[in-house]
Design a protein around this nucleic acid. Structure first.
Lengths: 256, 256
DNA sequence: GCCCGGGCTTGATGTTCGTCAATCGGACAG
DNA sequence: CTGTCCGATTGACGAACATCAAGCCCGGGC
């Protein structure tokens, strides 16, 4: 395993605060693997033996029931996933699939659990990361239950624009079929919804989207910081916990 | 604060494993308060200064957007809530309301965060509780995105029956309007859905429900351990983490 | 006893969304 | 270049669901 990769992992909020011993123990039994696109890394219901760290590529988390599938999240580097199952040593509740060829680091789940109880700082980091993931899911559930399809799409586009730097034109990060599944609608309906957003200043050309009248779109979308996390993805803010702390920042960690 | 209450808190998985010092620090600045029904304990978007522990009564967690409300969870004793916001020192993403008169213990969030980094066992317990809550939300999101209203209701009834001891007849734990909101439908539709379940052996009499042909209902509901958590609530299994570990139990915590 | 209010139910109606089917268009192999 | 495949689109239709508007039931207050 290359030092470059090790440093990227060490820089993750999840690992940046732990002792060198802890980090050595965790990475000793770890291995980095490259997977082709479309590989199922983990099937829902299977026991989870590793914490996965996506270093390069794209990974989809999906859930299944009654021959229907839904996308629960789309991950980009650098992200960890199935941390909850590792912490509890439980079966995974969702499947993980590579969307593109991906470099993935696998850390022993047993080692994770052992090391947590020895290194309080690491355990705190795990708790914080879990809390960040939890809050992301609360946002998803509110988004799903409170908004209609068109509103979800409008907010997705607004969020995406901000995360990609704020330019009026940006690219959809995945296939539209997968985006539809993430937004909780069918591909047909996503198509129609995108067409309907033309009235609100949204121009679509293949994967490229241009928002010509942001104010008009926002009046429809009614974005809300308690549902949408508009934090830009730039600048090395990689952990789910850090994303949830924005915009307050770490300085709120006062003792009083 | 009475010793009886202290012991109930100490027995929670979240606190059962921490040192006496940790527990003393946490409970020193804590206070127990009784709230009447319908009290808003916390408004979404407000900073969270306390970890709440519901000792008696019922609490509803709800989310709001655009003048619409949805129930995200209904809590019964003994449960902690808004742990994620406390861990990250962030604003709450949902409101908390008492449904009945409730006894609630409030622990300083700042103390929680301070103590976590000093007591690894406590930090691990927090991480585990967070992981349990996270998995509960994954289940909710899958339930919401993959199933239709009738299926959600059918599975809710099956789960409720098992949690209340497995008898064919049991009582709905809350007002139907709130149940409808939890299930992501309108009260009108819940009424109609309950009526529709008559064909599947479900008899409803006010808050009392009888499942006369469980097999028939299950064929409709298609319950799935990756969505529905059928663990009975009896026998002091109170933490979200413990509920997620079932049915494996703690013996899976092998080092290898 | 009576009235009143709130929760629940029931029916009628419209909107949203999913499904089925056909078509379009670009990517790629032969 | 041409045929094929697959994703995206478009239209027609039906199912699921929300909304609006009664009416019912039951319990509390007068």
């Amino acid at each position: 395993m290359r030092d470059v990769d090790l440093e990227r992992v060490r820089a993750l909020p999840l690992f940046s605060d732990c002792s060198d011993d802890t980090f050595r123990t965790l990475t000793a039994g770890a291995f980095l693997q490259r997977f082709p696109a479309g590989t199922t890394l983990l099937l829902e219901g299977d026991p989870v033996d590793f914490l996965y760290v996506l270093l390069d590529g794209v990974v989809e988390l999906e859930g299944t029931w009654n021959d229907k599938e839904t996308t629960l999240a789309i991950l980009r580097p650098v992200s960890t996933f199935i941390l909850a199952a590792v912490v509890l040593d439980a079966d995974g509740l969702m499947s993980a699939r590579t969307v593109e060829r991906s470099d993935i680091l696998m850390l022993s789940g047993a080692a994770m659990r052992r090391v947590m109880s020895e290194d309080a700082r690491f355990a705190v980091a795990v708790a914080q990361e879990m809390a960040g993931c939890y809050r992301g899911l609360v946002r998803s559930l509110k988004n799903q239950k409170l908004r209609g399809g068109l509103e979800r799409l409008a907010n997705y586009l607004i969020t995406q624009r901000l995360r990609q730097g704020g330019e009026p034109t940006f690219a959809l990060p995945t296939e539209k079929r997968m985006l539809a599944s993430l937004l909780g609608m069918t591909p047909e309906n996503l198509s129609r919804s995108l067409a309907a957003l033309a009235d609100y200043g949204v121009e679509v050309n293949g994967p490229s989207v241009t928002i010509t009248r942001p104010a008009v779109l926002e009046r429809l979308a009614k974005p809300d910081p308690l549902i949408d996390n508009h934090q830009p993805v730039s600048g090395g803010v990689t952990g789910k916990a850090q994303r949830e702390r924005w915009p307050q920042g770490d300085d709120r960690t006062h003792a009083a």
